[in-house]
Design a protein around this nucleic acid. Sequence first.
DNA 1: TTTGTTATGGAAACCGGTGTCATAACGCAA
DNA 2: TTGCGTTATGACACCGGTTTCCATAACAAA
Lengths: 374, 374
Amino acid sequence: MASVKNTQGTKTSQAVVDTAADAVEEFIRRRKKATINDVARLARVSKKTVSRVINNSPSVRNETREQVNDIIARIGFRPDPQARGLAFRRSFLFGLIYDNPNAQYIVNIQSGALDRMRGTGFELVVHPCDKESDDFLEEIREFVELQRLAGVILLPPIAENRALLAVLEDLDVPYVRVTAMHGAENDPPILSPQVVSRDRHGCMLAAEHLLALGHKRIGFVTGPAGYASARERRQGFNEGLSKQGLSIDPALEVEGAYSFESGLEAGLKLLDRPDRPTAIFASNDEMAIGVYRAAFQLGLHIPDDLSVIGFDDTPAAGRVQPPLTTVRLPIRDMGRAAAETLIDPEAERRASTIVSASLTVRDSTGPAETIFKP
Amino acid sequence: MASVKNTQGTKTSQAVVDTAADAVEEFIRRRKKATINDVARLARVSKKTVSRVINNSPSVRNETREQVNDIIARIGFRPDPQARGLAFRRSFLFGLIYDNPNAQYIVNIQSGALDRMRGTGFELVVHPCDKESDDFLEEIREFVELQRLAGVILLPPIAENRALLAVLEDLDVPYVRVTAMHGAENDPPILSPQVVSRDRHGCMLAAEHLLALGHKRIGFVTGPAGYASARERRQGFNEGLSKQGLSIDPALEVEGAYSFESGLEAGLKLLDRPDRPTAIFASNDEMAIGVYRAAFQLGLHIPDDLSVIGFDDTPAAGRVQPPLTTVRLPIRDMGRAAAETLIDPEAERRASTIVSASLTVRDSTGPAETIFKP
DNA sequence: TTTGTTATGGAAACCGGTGTCATAACGCAA
DNA sequence: TTGCGTTATGACACCGGTTTCCATAACAAA
């Protein structure tokens, strides 16, 4: 110590490193997980100073900081998330909470979020739940509280559950909702941070596409009532039709459940009649593929006898025969954006990240009047 | 305290509860997360004794145990996983590590594992990785070590990566591999705990099914070389054929990559020739659906001109036209079993959990000789 | 040189549990 | 009743970080 005091600033640091060099070497040889105490000892500073360096606290001399960082790098120190979490009273875990939408959707969100989280020190805990169960809210409350989550990502449909949002507010945990952008006429809009997709716009494109092909009698398979996405998609499609003075024909509208079976059923209902539509828009791909089955059962050929459009652009959309024209949502990007919102406090303040939908035109849509063609 | 000593055993407990009753009430009113100290204070025992109760340590008087449990229940105490993990030097997190197999597979495993984990206090952290990346092993090592995982679930194909297994052994973390059961002729079998599926048996059933329908010229689309599942499926199919003295015809075998595109390509290669096979087995559904596309492009009708069998029974299998005959694996059950292995030390000792494959017959397979039918 | 601030670093307590070890309480034979 | 081996319990240090509070060093102004 005395010698340290005697030497000048810049030399001090060097001297310390030199003196400690073999200690460091030996430590590395021991090949044990390093702790903050090891760093402090080898860098000849207090734990607190190391802690300051780790947390980018401003009041550390540059010289000291470098010295500490040098040791950290050399012995490969990584602060223990559990210990840090305990002290912070907050873990380094994000929770992904969902109620069983389709697998492809979940995996894409997951993969996007993880992509953004890579290297940040956060990890993702997945937590499916059942919104119909009695202790649904209690169950989530306990999960979030017990794990002291650093953030929560909510997927539809529970992202629209106000009771759940209230619980999260109460727990004071940062959260982000992934959902379809709200139209103007909706009940009090939710203001919490969200990643929203322009479902409405996508469906408008779909409607315009069908209109451009000359379709007039168009069937519409709605998503389940109560889902924001179902409402938005319907509204968007209607808006698209309205540009040519049309609107969704109540006689040609059937509610589905976002499932293949419900799509099949809806398809049969719409197609098994003399004045059947020449095109059907289904509010997601699953149901669109159900409509395919219905068409097949009735001996109708797509796209000659019937045009079909779906929503989601799942991998299956490109694989069915004929490949399905569908509205595409950049789900992975939405996952990425959701993670971004939780990671960057700046982003959280922006509240809404908006992503666009686009139309992927494949072979399931064709002109309405093929019948009259040679 | 003196009064406590003066009263008799049974009364003591009652007295304590009585005395503390209002303290408990008041605590509950404060509505703050309870800690072990609160429990200790209210139950008038030491932290350590509470800890003993939590961990089912045997040396606690029944009376004391009840008293403590009573307080725990009343104030809703749940030990903090972070603090517990820190002290145990092990978290309560399981890691699910995978390298990008298909979404459906991951979600099913995930959902099965989570189903089994519900209520155990463990949570699941998902961690995709890229086995081609340079720091693949280092990346996983750091993840597992830093999070001090309580267990790791490995999915194919990395479940067969011996270097990775060595890392996990070195870290001394419990892990379980999900994989296809090894045939006898394989290189030194891996003995670590695993959940294995009888892919071979499933493929044998597929072969028998085709043989029973009279097929002789059968195409085979292999999975990627190096994948255990690819090897096993091939072997099983071959065994099935061998029962009638046949075997996979090298001229009718094409290697695929478990992807739609590779299935399409393989299908074209196999079908675009005069002596085309009357049936094709694809080593997974994705590729089978690729074969569908190939058949469509060549104007072949399934199942009249060509029978197709896949493997996995993904949701898509039931939705394509015609619905695909395929080998079904209970993926969710495998996820459940994997979690079980990590949760129950007994189960871990059993080393292998075996699950069966079955054949789901749908409409993509038909008799070989339809050509000669009326 | 002395004084008044402001940066910097350290000791000790704390986050909420567990491990070790000593001691108190208990059951039972002598 | 005494003695002794168990069994039950508690005191205290510890896991690996952070925070509070205070002492000191560094530097500008007087």
